[in-house]
Computed example of a mutant assay.
Amino acid sequence: MADDFSKVTGLPDDLGIEDDLRRSEEVLTVRTDTRRYGKAMTIIEGFEDGEDLRELASSLKRSLACGGTVEGDTIELQGNHVARVPDLLREHGYAVEER
Protein backbone atom coordinates (compact mmCIF):
# COMPACT_ATOMS: atom_id res chain seq x y z
CA MET A 1 0.00 0.00 0.00
CA ALA A 2 2.86 2.39 0.76
CA ASP A 3 4.17 1.83 -2.76
CA ASP A 4 0.82 2.95 -4.17
CA PHE A 5 0.93 6.26 -2.30
CA SER A 6 4.54 6.99 -3.17
CA LYS A 7 3.81 6.40 -6.87
CA VAL A 8 0.83 8.73 -6.81
CA THR A 9 2.28 11.50 -4.66
CA GLY A 10 5.90 11.24 -5.75
CA LEU A 11 6.96 11.66 -2.11
CA PRO A 12 9.42 9.34 -0.36
CA ASP A 13 8.05 6.56 1.85
CA ASP A 14 10.04 7.93 4.82
CA LEU A 15 7.58 10.82 5.24
CA GLY A 16 4.83 8.48 6.43
CA ILE A 17 2.20 10.20 4.30
CA GLU A 18 0.25 6.96 3.84
CA ASP A 19 -0.73 6.92 7.54
CA ASP A 20 -2.05 10.47 7.37
CA LEU A 21 -4.00 9.78 4.19
CA ARG A 22 -5.48 6.56 5.59
CA ARG A 23 -6.59 8.35 8.76
CA SER A 24 -8.20 11.19 6.84
CA GLU A 25 -10.20 8.73 4.72
CA GLU A 26 -11.64 6.86 7.71
CA VAL A 27 -14.88 8.27 9.04
CA LEU A 28 -15.33 7.56 12.73
CA THR A 29 -18.55 7.68 14.71
CA VAL A 30 -18.78 8.71 18.34
CA ARG A 31 -21.78 7.71 20.44
CA THR A 32 -22.72 7.04 24.05
CA ASP A 33 -24.02 3.85 25.55
CA THR A 34 -25.28 3.04 29.03
CA ARG A 35 -23.51 0.24 30.81
CA ARG A 36 -23.73 -1.43 34.17
CA TYR A 37 -25.37 0.59 36.94
CA GLY A 38 -26.45 3.28 34.46
CA LYS A 39 -22.90 4.52 33.81
CA ALA A 40 -22.27 6.27 30.49
CA MET A 41 -19.62 5.00 28.05
CA THR A 42 -18.37 6.86 25.00
CA ILE A 43 -17.91 4.48 22.07
CA ILE A 44 -15.67 5.34 19.09
CA GLU A 45 -16.20 3.12 16.05
CA GLY A 46 -15.12 2.94 12.41
CA PHE A 47 -11.42 2.11 12.63
CA GLU A 48 -9.88 -0.06 9.95
CA ASP A 49 -8.29 -3.39 10.82
CA GLY A 50 -4.65 -3.40 11.84
CA GLU A 51 -4.61 0.08 13.33
CA ASP A 52 -2.83 0.57 16.66
CA LEU A 53 -5.78 1.68 18.78
CA ARG A 54 -4.10 1.21 22.15
CA GLU A 55 -1.83 4.22 21.63
CA LEU A 56 -4.74 6.42 20.51
CA ALA A 57 -6.92 5.21 23.39
CA SER A 58 -4.13 6.00 25.85
CA SER A 59 -3.80 9.52 24.47
CA LEU A 60 -7.57 10.09 24.67
CA LYS A 61 -7.74 8.78 28.23
CA ARG A 62 -4.94 11.14 29.29
CA SER A 63 -6.62 14.12 27.62
CA LEU A 64 -10.02 13.35 29.13
CA ALA A 65 -8.78 12.12 32.53
CA CYS A 66 -10.87 8.97 32.31
CA GLY A 67 -10.53 5.22 32.06
CA GLY A 68 -11.27 3.10 29.06
CA THR A 69 -10.37 0.12 26.93
CA VAL A 70 -10.00 -1.16 23.39
CA GLU A 71 -12.51 -3.85 22.38
CA GLY A 72 -11.83 -5.24 18.92
CA ASP A 73 -11.98 -2.30 16.53
CA THR A 74 -13.65 0.15 18.94
CA ILE A 75 -12.42 2.38 21.74
CA GLU A 76 -14.58 2.62 24.87
CA LEU A 77 -14.10 5.53 27.27
CA GLN A 78 -15.71 5.80 30.69
CA GLY A 79 -18.13 8.71 30.91
CA ASN A 80 -19.96 10.90 28.41
CA HIS A 81 -17.30 12.67 26.34
CA VAL A 82 -19.23 13.10 23.08
CA ALA A 83 -18.70 16.86 23.13
CA ARG A 84 -14.88 16.70 23.38
CA VAL A 85 -13.86 13.47 21.61
CA PRO A 86 -14.53 14.60 18.00
CA ASP A 87 -12.16 17.56 18.39
CA LEU A 88 -9.47 15.35 19.92
CA LEU A 89 -9.82 12.82 17.10
CA ARG A 90 -9.53 15.58 14.51
CA GLU A 91 -6.29 16.69 16.17
CA HIS A 92 -5.01 13.15 15.55
CA GLY A 93 -5.97 13.43 11.87
CA TYR A 94 -9.26 11.48 11.80
CA ALA A 95 -12.52 12.50 10.16
CA VAL A 96 -15.50 12.30 12.53
CA GLU A 97 -19.15 11.96 11.60
CA GLU A 98 -21.35 14.30 13.61
CA ARG A 99 -24.48 12.79 15.15
Rank of each mutant, 00 (worst) to 15 (best):
G16F: 04
V82D: 03
R23C: 10
S6P: 01
I44Y: 00
L89M: 09
R22L: 12
T9S: 13
D73F: 05
D52F: 00
L11E: 09
V82Q: 10
G79P: 01
L15C: 10
S63C: 03
R23E: 04
K7L: 14
R62N: 11
V8W: 06
L88D: 09
R54D: 13
S63Q: 07
V85W: 02
L28V: 11
F5Q: 09
V96R: 06
T32M: 06
L28R: 00
R35E: 11
T69A: 13
S59E: 12
D4K: 15
R31N: 09
D13G: 00
L15F: 14
E18C: 06
R54F: 03
L77K: 02
L56F: 03
G72A: 08
L60S: 01
T69N: 13
P86I: 09
R36T: 14
D14Q: 12
A83V: 07
F5G: 08
T42Q: 07
I75D: 00
I75A: 07
A40S: 13
F5V: 15
V85G: 01
D14C: 09
L77F: 02
V27W: 02
D33L: 10
A57F: 03
S63R: 10
E98G: 03
L64R: 01
R31E: 10
S63Y: 03
I43C: 06
D14L: 06
L89D: 00
H92M: 10
L28C: 04
R62P: 00
I43Y: 02
T42D: 04
G50P: 05
G79L: 11
G72F: 08
E97L: 13
N80V: 05
L15R: 11
G72Q: 02
D52V: 09
E71Q: 11
D20K: 10
L15M: 14
D87K: 13
I17W: 07
M41G: 03
L77I: 07
A65R: 13
S24M: 15
I75W: 05
R54N: 05
Y94C: 04
N80Q: 11
E25I: 15
G72L: 06
E71L: 12
S63T: 03
H81Y: 02
R54T: 04
Y94H: 05
H92Q: 15
E51S: 02
R90L: 08
I43G: 00
D49I: 01
S24F: 11
G10I: 11
L77Y: 01
V27Y: 01
T69D: 15
E18Q: 15
R84I: 06
D52A: 08
C66F: 00
D49R: 13
L60F: 02
K7A: 09
I75M: 04
R31I: 04
G10L: 14
V96C: 05
L77R: 01
L53A: 06
I44W: 02
T69C: 10
G67Q: 07
L77Q: 01
L53R: 05
L60H: 03
E51P: 00
I17A: 13
R62Q: 12
L77W: 07
L56S: 03
R35S: 13
A57L: 01
V82E: 14
R23T: 08
H81K: 10
C66V: 14
R23Q: 08
D87N: 12
E26W: 12
A65V: 08
L88C: 05
